[in-house]
Design a protein around this nucleic acid. Structure first.
Length: 592
RNA sequence: GGCCCCGUAGCUCAGUCGGAUAGAGCAACCGCCUUCUAAGCGGUAGGUCACUGGUUCGAAUCCAGUCGGGGUCGCCA
């Protein structure tokens, strides 16, 4: 299987052949040994008239080879020219080598794509390496808003992408159930509890006013009667807190499920210090033993000084040893741990669970926290762990270009659930990754449900439906044709050779490469843009059949050509379905 | 003030670990569109890739600085 997958990636395939040519030249003594070929790439040329593939090998190696790029290119071309899969080699510009491939290559790619089906594009890039993707991690104090939704969708799409690229992915959620905010939640819920018992209550400033706690209060009343009413806060708080956190997490999980997001691990911050074990203490002691924890004073922040600033000795982590700008506090003045301290222990737990590779998805407002967390991971893993942190910028919710604001239910914001209910999971999921994560995103509730090319969700799904429709129609016209992928893999594809068809093939052949690049850079948006491009290419070809009937996918008088064209229609359908599946978006067979 | 992110066509944005003549959608203009599933297809026009300098055979991409926008800034989470 591995070999089949690799063979599918023509860029990787010819990268090896170029490398082999260089090796041969070294063996013959015509090039010096020890050349670094890491920067050699084979990529699609910007301009299709330059051929199918281009390599920078000669330019990259010229200096070390003590040669000039064009002379070197000629040597490489000489080695490649006997390759039967290459029909044309040009040296162009500053020393590019342009390769034009035999059409067979594309036909073979198509045939193998048909054979692999949904596996086409997947790879062994990750080699089964364990990766932990932590995302959402919204505080369990209320419903999720649209910003959470972006992180949720981004994280889930990235997880799916990495799985497709051969990583062993664990989806994880960190429940911040230990800070002061969950005490506030408990007090807010307790008020709702008293309300459920018939009291008239008023929610003071600083507590959570949202309606969503009303049912929690009612549930508390049902379970505990008036028992909690006579207790002191010290008595009822842990009970109500735990109850309310569970209720909030149930709500959040329900919201996530509507987007088909399901984490494998829910890790509780509180569990780090439960039942007599204190993982945070252990971690601090360990770091202290290595001289990375000390009592000291931090310089005051520059610029506007906080009102309550006072110079004070603190317990600090020496994050500056690992690239941070200042050392960071790990104990509060009342002796409790900071959030950072718990987070260090949490990431230590990930590492101990076998994740040398960790990815965190955070909101952009946590940008100031990145360096210290990465410093901490370096410290606790001895440099063996890698933490990539992807920041998701704000989502601006619009309706026909006008900002959407406020929601009664949540108390302050439009909830994610409301948005998913209005426009559907597919629109939310696709649009949330139709932007780079580090740019702000406009999400227009009206536009994402339009049936038009400017709405990418629709456009891509429609292209998939069109392929499915063509196959259905073909089955009607030619009942004898086996329209399954396996059946179409037997088609004689050599008749498909119109230039616009070959353009589409080139795009299809890029899919494995796009997946690898997207996975390597942790950028799922590349898949979304690729799918849009593929949909556009298909529709363009479809439209050509209007003026040039001989290019139509179904030709009633020619079963051979029809079989061949159905082959690539099937491949395009499957690539669209595959990419959409990676992003967690459905691929409908018809648009209604 | 420190740190992080962003700055690409009128607007919204892509741009391959540095590669050839910088792309798409929308808007504008021109043409086509009663098709195998309609919601489109083709074309024209539109650019000092914020600015300056550096590295390089080669920079939208890397580095330094400047300007502009956003975020963040000792114990919140």
């Amino acid at each position: 299987m591995k070999r089949a997958k690799d063979k599918m990636n023509i860029f990787a395939l010819f990268e090896r052949r170029v490398a082999d040519a260089i090796k041969a030249l070294v063996a013959e003594g015509r090039l010096p040994a020890g050349l670094d070929t890491a920067r050699v790439v084979v990529e699609p040329p910007r301009d299709a008239s330059h051929g199918d593939l281009a390599t920078n090998a000669a330019m990259v190696l010229a200096k070390d080879a003590k040669s000039n790029p064009r002379a070197l290119a000629e040597m490489i071309v000489e080695k490649l020219k006997d390759d039967k899969d290459i029909v044309k080699l040009d040296i162009a510009g500053p020393g590019f080598i342009n390769l034009t491939l035999a059409q067979d290559i594309f036909h073979n790619v198509l045939r193998e794509a048909l054979t692999l089906g949904r596996d086409f594009g997947s790879s062994n890039q990750g080699k089964g390496q364990k990766v932990n993707v932590e995302y959402v991690s919204a505080n369990p104090t209320g419903p999720m808003h649209v910003g959470h939704g972006r992180g949720a969708v981004f994280g889930d799409a990235l997880a799916g992408l990495l799985e497709f690229a051969g990583y062993d992915v664990t989806r994880e959620y960190y429940i911040n159930d230990a800070g002061a905010q969950v005490d506030v939640l408990a007090r807010s819920a307790h008020l709702r509890y008293r309300e459920a018992l018939g009291e008239t209550i008023e929610i003071p400033e600083g507590l959570y006013p949202g309606d969503y706690l009303v049912p929690v209060g009612e549930a508390l009343a049902k379970q505990y009667g008036d028992k909690l009413k006579s207790q002191s806060e010290a008595e009822w708080l842990p009970v109500v807190r735990s109850f309310a956190i569970d209720a909030m997490m149930a709500m959040i999980r329900e919201d996530l499920a509507r987007l088909d997001i399901r984490h494998a691990v829910f890790f509780s911050e509180r569990s780090l210090t439960k039942n007599g074990t204190d993982e945070i203490r252990k971690m601090i002691d360990d770091l202290r033993g290595r001289g990375l924890i000390y009592e000291g004073r931090l310089p005051p922040p520059k610029g506007q000084l906080p009102d309550d600033w006072e110079d004070r000795e603190q317990t600090l982590f020496k994050s500056t040893d690992f690239g941070d700008d200042v050392d960071r506090a790990i104990m509060k003045s009342d002796g409790s741990y900071t959030y950072f301290a718990a987070d260090i222990a949490y990431h230590h737990s990930k590492f101990q669970r076998g994740f040398a590779s960790m990815i965190d998805i955070w909101g952009a407002d946590h940008g100031g926290y990145v360096k210290r967390m990465q410093a901490a991971v370096k410290a606790i893993t001895g440099g063996k762990g890698d933490l990539d942190i992807k920041l998701c910028q704000l989502v601006r919710l619009l309706r026909n270009g006008e900002p959407v604001k406020m929601s009664k239910r949540s108390g302050e914001f439009v909830t994610l659930r409301e948005v998913v209910e209005e426009v559907g999971s597919d629109a939310v999921r696709f649009m949330m990754v139709f932007r780079k994560n580090d740019g702000t995103l406009d999400f227009d509730l009206a536009k994402v449900v339009e049936m038009a090319k400017e709405n990418p969700v629709f456009y891509v799904q429609y292209a998939h439906a069109r392929c499915a429709s063509v196959l259905r129609e073909a089955q009607r016209v030619f009942p004898k044709i086996d329209i399954s992928a396996a059946g179409l893999a037997k088609s004689d594809l050599s008749a498909v050779n119109d230039s616009s068809e070959l353009d589409l093939f080139r795009l299809v052949a890029q899919y494995p490469r796009q997946v690898e690049a997207a996975a390597a850079n942790h950028e799922p948006h590349r898949i979304a843009f690729y799918l849009y491009e593929l949909a556009s290419s298909l529709n363009s070809l479809w439209n050509k059949g209007k003026d040039l009937p001989h290019l139509r996918f179904i030709n009633q008088d020619d079963e051979t050509i029809t079989r061949a064209r159905l082959g690539f229609v099937c491949v395009v359908r499957d690539v669209l379905a595959s990419g959409l599946a990676v992003l967690g978006v459905s691929a409908p067979d018809e648009m209604r």
